[in-house]
Amino acid sequence: MIRLIEDSDPSAFEMLKLLYPHSGNAFIIGITGPPGVGKSTLIDALILEFRKLDIKIAVIAVDPTSPISGGAILGDRLRMQRHATDEKVFIRSMASRGQKGGLSRATKDAAIVLDAMGYEIIIIETVGAGQGEFEVATIAHSTGIINIPGTGDGIQTVKAGILETGDVFIVNKSDKPDADELVHHLTRMISMRKPFKTNLAKTNWTARVLKTIARDGTGVKELADTFLSHFDFMKKNSLLDQKRKKIEKSYFTSLLKDLILKKVLLFAETSGEYMEVLNKIQSREMDPLSAAELVVNNICVLKSNN
C-alpha cells in the first residue's frame, strides 16, 4: 500500500480515501536534526521504551534521494533492525524522491495508512538540513530536534525559527564533552523567547531540553516520557485538536495546490492561447509576467462564469 503511494499509483489514492476516516488516533512524533547526530539510533532506543509500555509503534525514516541518479541508500533501518521481527513494530524507509526539504507528501500519506492500521505512535525521522525540521513539524504532533555537543558555536546550531518549531530539544551524544554547555545554552534561548510568544497553540507548553546517549539508552526513558506527557498535555488543553486542525489544513492546502496546478496547467496548455502567448514571449512582444497574468485571469474568469 505504501509502495503504491510512493509510486503515485492511482489505486493508492482510492484506498487512501477509504482509509482516511479510520485515521486520526495516532500520536505522531517528528525526530529531526543534521546527519549523523544519532536520530536513527535514538529512535531505536525509543522503540524499546515504547514497547515496554506495549505501545504499537511505526517508524517512517526518510532519506534523501540522490539528485544525480535518482537512487537512494536507505540506511536508517540498519540501526533499528533488532525490532524487525517484533509484530508490533513496523519500520518503513522512504526516499525523498526529489521533493524539497526531503519530506515528501508520500510521507504524510504513509502516516495516514499506518495510523488507520492502528499504530498508536508513529515516529518520522527526517534529516534536518534546510527546511527539513520545519516540514516535519507540519505533520507531527510533537517535534524533537536533535543537536550534539562539540559542533562549534552553540548559537550557530540554533537556526532561526527553530525554537518555535521544537517541542523537545535533545542533546544526544552527551557522553561527549560540552554537553552541559549546549543544554544550558538551549535552555537559556528557550526561556528568553517565552515573553514574546504569540502563537496560542504553543503558549502553554514550554519546550524541554533533554540529554541522551542514544547508543546505550541513557536518558531515553525520560525522553519517551516527555513525548507522552506532551501528548497528554495537548489533550488536556485541547491543544491537540488545534494542532490536528493545523496539520490537516496544511495537508489539504498542499493537496489543493497539487490538484489545481495539475488541472490548470493541463487546461492552459491545451488552450490555443497558451501557444500564442508563448510565441509572443519568445518574440519579446510580451513579457512572461503579463503573459502569466493574462492566462491565469482568463482561466479564473472562465471558471466563475460557468
Binding site: T65, S69, G70, I73, L74, R77
Partner: peptide, 10 residues
Amino acid sequence: RDAGMEVIYS
C-alpha cells in the same frame, strides 16, 4: 544507488 535504485541496507 548510482544506477537509480532505492537500496535498503540492513
